[in-house]
Amino acid sequence: MKKAIITTLLISSLLLSGCGNNEAGNGYAAAPEQTGAESSATPEATPAATAVATVQPTPEATTTAAPSPETTAEATPEPEASTRQAYFDKLDKIEEGLSDLKAISDKGTTLAMSVAAVQENERWDKALNEIYQVLKQQLPEAEMAKLKEEQRNWITLRDETAAKEAAKYEGGTAEGLEYAITLASVTRDRCYKLVELYMD
């Protein structure tokens, strides 16, 4: 009887320990022990490996589709038009932004109109200098040297034109006003001309 109880306990403990280590009972197939000949064969996939395998993207899914020519053209504007157009837009905004100076000019005094004209010229002159700096970076050295000489001649012409227009009012209060108005107008025209002729 004692022998039967000990045998039953041993069998029970073996069964319990066997159940705890049984991977098949936990949802996993037990991997058979591989011998040298069997190791080169593909082992059976476990449920976890199967799940991973089904989630892996196919080569078709991982390749990125090349953008169509139409999409590329829309996303990146042509370099020739982009900088030039950006500066035309910038100059147009300066033009639109001059409305704040109209309020000063509308005061009707020569002094107020002169202040507005000087400020307008300063805005155009600043834009001209910015354009010139961009052109220094874009143009080949020989072309830039030519433009530099052209710009010196233009400055002389600008000053002469402003002086000539102002001379119509020589000795009057409008002389300085006309000089400032002409400087602003000629500088504005030069900004547009440089962008049109030289900007990429």
Score class of each variant (00 low, 15 high):
47 P>R: 04
82 S>C: 03
94 I>T: 01
77 P>F: 12
33 E>P: 12
45 A>H: 05
40 S>K: 06
95 E>C: 03
31 A>Y: 03
71 T>S: 06
82 S>V: 07
33 E>A: 14
72 T>Q: 13
31 A>T: 02
54 T>V: 12
38 E>R: 05
71 T>D: 02
77 P>L: 15
83 T>G: 08
86 A>P: 01
59 P>A: 08
69 P>T: 13
57 P>L: 14
53 A>S: 11
92 D>S: 10
99 S>P: 01
85 Q>I: 05
65 A>D: 07
91 L>K: 04
57 P>K: 12
38 E>W: 08
64 T>I: 15
54 T>D: 12
73 A>C: 01
88 F>L: 14
95 E>H: 07
58 T>V: 03
86 A>F: 13
68 S>M: 07
73 A>H: 07
78 E>K: 12
58 T>N: 02
49 A>F: 04
78 E>L: 14
96 E>G: 14
37 A>T: 02
81 A>H: 02
44 E>S: 09
58 T>M: 05
99 S>V: 15
36 G>F: 15
91 L>R: 04
44 E>D: 03
96 E>H: 10
51 A>P: 00
69 P>V: 12
95 E>L: 09
32 P>H: 04
39 S>T: 06
98 L>Q: 05
38 E>P: 00
75 A>V: 03
96 E>V: 15
71 T>F: 08
88 F>M: 15
66 A>V: 04
67 P>G: 09
86 A>T: 08
56 Q>T: 10
39 S>D: 02
93 K>S: 02
87 Y>P: 01
76 T>A: 14
65 A>W: 04
41 A>W: 08
82 S>F: 05
47 P>W: 03
94 I>N: 02
37 A>G: 00
61 A>F: 14
78 E>G: 09
51 A>C: 01
75 A>C: 00
73 A>L: 11
83 T>W: 15
35 T>E: 00
78 E>Q: 11
61 A>H: 11
68 S>T: 14
90 K>N: 03
56 Q>M: 13
63 T>N: 05
85 Q>C: 05
91 L>F: 00
95 E>F: 07
32 P>E: 07
83 T>V: 15
93 K>V: 07
80 E>C: 08
97 G>W: 08
93 K>G: 02
42 T>G: 08
56 Q>D: 03
63 T>P: 00
88 F>H: 10
55 V>T: 07
76 T>F: 10
77 P>T: 13
69 P>K: 15
54 T>G: 03
67 P>T: 11
59 P>Y: 09
51 A>F: 05
93 K>L: 07
72 T>V: 14
90 K>L: 11
59 P>K: 10
96 E>S: 14
98 L>W: 00
98 L>V: 01
65 A>F: 02
98 L>I: 01
92 D>L: 10
80 E>H: 11
97 G>N: 14
98 L>C: 00
59 P>H: 04
95 E>T: 09
67 P>I: 14
41 A>P: 05
51 A>M: 08
75 A>Q: 04
53 A>Q: 12
34 Q>L: 13
68 S>L: 10
37 A>E: 08
40 S>P: 00
87 Y>E: 12
48 A>N: 06
34 Q>M: 11
83 T>N: 10
68 S>I: 08
43 P>V: 05
62 T>M: 11
37 A>L: 15
